[in-house]
């Protein structure tokens, strides 16, 4: 009973997160199960005999009842084994298949790299723009920032991508229009090649975060304690940074978490435009080839990303709430 309430709440949230992930795994498995079509038929074609199909299915374990396959899969996942990809197998019996982990690993790393690169620039920039827009609200600056970000968020991301390619790759060849990176690309080269996709993503997510920061702060400006701060003769900067911002974290952090999750799970369009070898493309390919283990692994990683980021946002909201952090 001596556990600090914040720690208790955090532990509760963690447990809840694990539970959620477990339920999501069931949903993913059932979802994939319900997909029309079948990998064996896709590979073997219409002409295959019943026997070859059955034999191939047996080899892949597809003849087992669904619940056994689910527990096999989830049991493996818990120990870090996501199974073996279906692709690379053929009816001939030659097995060039790879472990799902090996297949996803480099792609996930690429995606995380692009996401981090974007976030490192976009999050501070969005906060800065949001805070300054709140500080100089209704000024020309505020309107320009608002209008620009609204424009970028209203434009489809592939369009933003092609505009950037047009101006920064085609007309003024500053950056490469293809972001083909491989595991042995050097860091500086990697950053250089990923610049355009990162810029595209930043333009898409800054608007959302900036507008929420501005709104969360302005929302508080009518509070009596803000009036009190003004009546103490404090500068507007101090009023906003010291008195409004600390109370505005909860909504801001939630929007940041939402956008970071988007950077990991929602960037397939941008990956396609720049031919960036990320995890989004991998999943789309796996769906077309009915490569079930890869689809399931990607879906689970996406779900985990959402859960972890939202969990983090929750924890930060709790920790920045003095009522919870310093109980009576």
């Amino acid at each position: 009973m001596t556990v600090h309430p914040v720690i208790r709440t955090v532990l509760q949230r963690l447990a809840l997160g694990v539970m959620t992930l477990f339920f999501v795994s069931i949903v993913i498995f059932s979802g994939v199960e319900m997909l029309p079509g079948d990998f064996t038929q896709a590979v073997l074609g219409q002409a295959a005999t019943e026997e070859t199909v059955a034999a191939f299915r047996r080899e892949l374990g597809l003849d087992q009842p669904a619940y056994i396959r689910y527990f096999d899969w989830i049991g493996g996942v818990v120990t870090g084994d996501f199974g073996t990809s279906f692709s690379g197998r053929a009816a001939s019996g030659i097995d060039r298949s790879r472990d799902v982990v090996d297949l996803i690993g480099p792609r996930l790393w690429n995606t995380l790299f692009l996401a981090s690169m974007t976030a490192i620039v976009a999050v501070p920039l969005a906060l800065f723009l949001g805070i300054t827009a709140a500080l100089y609200r209704n000024s020309v600056y505020d309107r320009v920032v608002n209008a620009t970000t609204l424009a970028t968020i209203s434009t489809p991301e592939f369009f933003v991508a092609y505009i950037l390619i047009l101006f920064l790759a085609a007309l003024n060849p500053i950056f490469p229009s293809l972001a083909n990176v491989s595991p042995d690309t050097e860091l500086s080269e990697r950053i250089y090649r990923s610049a355009l996709p990162a810029m595209t993503l930043a333009l898409v997510i800054i608007a959302h975060m900036m507008r929420m920061t501005r709104a969360a702060i302005i929302n508080l400006l009518a509070s009596p304690y803000i009036e009190m701060a003004r009546l103490k003769g404090l500068s507007s900067t101090r009023v906003i940074l010291f008195h409004a911002l600390p109370n505005a974290w909860a909504p801001i952090v939630n929007v940041i978490a939402f956008n970071l999750a988007y950077l990991v799970v929602g960037v397939v369009v941008v990956e396609v435009v720049f031919v960036y070898p990320g995890i989004g493309q991998l999943m789309v390919d796996a769906v077309t080839t009915r490569d079930i283990p890869v689809v399931q692994a990607c879906a689970l990683i996406f779900a985990a990303t959402y859960i972890v980021l939202n969990l983090l946002a929750d924890i930060i909201s709790i920790v920045t709430n003095p009522r919870l952090l310093h109980p009576r």
Binding site: S223, P224, E227, M228, F242, N247, R323
Partner: peptide, 12 residues
């Protein structure tokens, strides 16, 4: 101010 509970900043 009238309501000290509202006029003190909860974060400090």
């Amino acid at each position: 101010a009238q309501s000290a509970a509202a006029a003190f900043n909860p974060a400090h």
